[in-house]
């Protein structure tokens, strides 16, 4: 492609496309404009407003979700590009009334103040645990660097993730 595609053609008319995603375990089919981000599809079309829009440019991490188990920024991908994949949002972390161990730990460690970044922090932390690369608190800080908390709850966030890592190491399996 040329480096700067700046077309002079008129914009095409909106043509909705069918997209099927498995969201928090349930298959969902949407008819949406192709330029709908995964974030907007979740929030505006599936009413899953737990996933937050912060910067909408991949800088803050508030929109972090898991796609096929891997954490990504939902604002920087199109819903249509994720066709057929499995998406887990913060609403899908708990099992009924049983909170995910990370959610329990965030409460126990006072890992939030206003809470706006928390859904992204939780999904990012779930991705971090699944990746299994973090060993030390410094590793946790580095591997959570894509999630900004403007309240500055970082010490609590690191402690919460550390406590779940410690428990998993002791229990020997994933909760």
């Amino acid at each position: 492609m040329p480096d700067s595609p700046r077309s002079t053609r008129p914009a095409p008319p909106p043509e909705p496309v069918a997209v099927t995603l498995t969201v928090n375990g349930a298959e969902r089919t949407l008819k949406i404009a192709p330029w709908t981000s995964l974030l907007d599809a979740l929030r505006l079309h599936l009413d899953l407003t737990g996933t937050k829009k912060g910067c909408d440019h991949g800088q803050c991490g508030a929109c972090t979700v898991l796609v096929d188990g891997r954490r990504i920024n939902a604002c920087l991908t199109l819903a249509v590009m994720q066709e057929g994949r499995s998406v887990t949002t913060v609403e899908g972390l708990a099992r009924g009334d049983a909170l995910h161990p990370l959610q329990e730990a965030f409460i126990a460690c006072d890992a939030l103040q206003c809470g706006y970044c928390t859904p992204g922090q939780l999904c990012s932390a779930a991705g971090l645990l699944a990746e299994g690369k973090a060993r030390s608190d410094d590793d946790i800080r580095e591997l959570m660097s894509g999630n900004i908390c403007r309240c500055g709850a970082y010490p609590g966030i690191v402690a919460a993730i550390r406590s779940v890592m410690n428990r998993r190491a002791t229990d020997g399996d994933a909760p």
């Binding site: 990504i72 920024n73 920087l76 991705g127 971090l128 959570m144 660097s145 894509g146």
Partner: peptide
């Protein structure tokens, strides 16, 4: 470079 989320994408 970048963040873990971005490196996954």
């Amino acid at each position: 470079g970048a963040s873990p989320q971005l490196r996954n994408m």
